[in-house]
Design a protein around this nucleic acid. Structure first.
Lengths: 141, 141
DNA sequence: GAGTGAACGATAATCATTCTCATTGTACTC
DNA sequence: GAGTACAATGAGAATGATTATCGTTCACTC
């Protein structure tokens, strides 16, 4: 990244100059209704333009560090990326790995949500419930 | 696992017969003040007894499916395991990867915490805030 | 004590992610 | 416009946690 004047956006986050590829990755994530893995992203972008896998990972890393996208680890271990727009929370089954999105975020309603002594710049949060979905309760003994 | 009578514990979870190794893994996790990775667990147990890495992973999988331990993915991608006793929530820095535990769980105070249409047996939940810790805010441009 | 199936250990295989390095692109200066 | 500096890129190798395989051992039942 080159030197730049770092103008402030109205949301308070500094606005950085994104490279063409970083912007392309962000665009694809915005167009998708569901979180994507890096590999899926790579496969999709490959069809549109020449891009390397390492570049996809580097772009995701940069976007994440600047609070533009969030990542979440799926049950199979791979990271799933999505834009930081709305809260996304899940019920995740430990057996089959399915995640059921929750449309309501209880954390928003907290009166005193974040009392912590550590100076910290919060970009987003995740709330996830783990257990067994109904079909899987019958399979685990 | 052999056939057994599946007596109920007072917490409502069925109590299964654990193998010696599964019990040993659970014991080590109970003795540790911090979550452990499977590799760390393997290294520690290796010093006490002969055990295979695959067995450690298998034991963790079984314990997790029965709601006895929780797992959480660290910033380096490896899973960290700890007993399901208390809530554990974190502030996690996207830059340096450090996690700062929160001693207070706001989710407990919610009036109507879980209104979801899906029948689901919840073992535990995770609440994690992501962003930048103070030192790292200076490094990310 | 024999039979049966789960649990085990060692090791190979898998696969997402990261690293390396030579090349290319992009400002910025003169 | 040429030259320079450095970030960004792509291809492919390397890493490392996790999972699969397979022959052996253990625990329980009859």
């Amino acid at each position: 990244m080159k030197s730049n004047s770092l103008p402030q956006q109205d949301n308070g986050h500094p606005m950085y100059h994104l490279t063409r590829n970083q912007q392309a990755v962000l665009d694809v994530l915005h167009q998708q209704p569901h979180p994507l893995s890096a590999q899926e992203l790579y496969g999709m972008m490959r069809q549109q333009q020449a891009i390397g896998l390492a570049t996809v990972y580097r772009a995701l890393e940069t976007l994440k560090l600047h609070g533009l996208i969030r990542s979440r680890t799926g049950t199979n271990g791979e990271s799933l990326y999505s834009p930081v727009l709305t809260d996304q929370h899940y019920l995740t089954c430990l057996q089959c790995g399915q995640s059921f999105p929750l449309d309501h975020c209880p954390v928003q309603e907290l009166k005193a949500p974040l009392q912590h002594p550590i100076p910290f710049k919060i970009y987003y949060h995740t709330l996830e419930f783990f257990g067994l979905c109904e079909p899987c309760t019958h399979q685990v003994e």
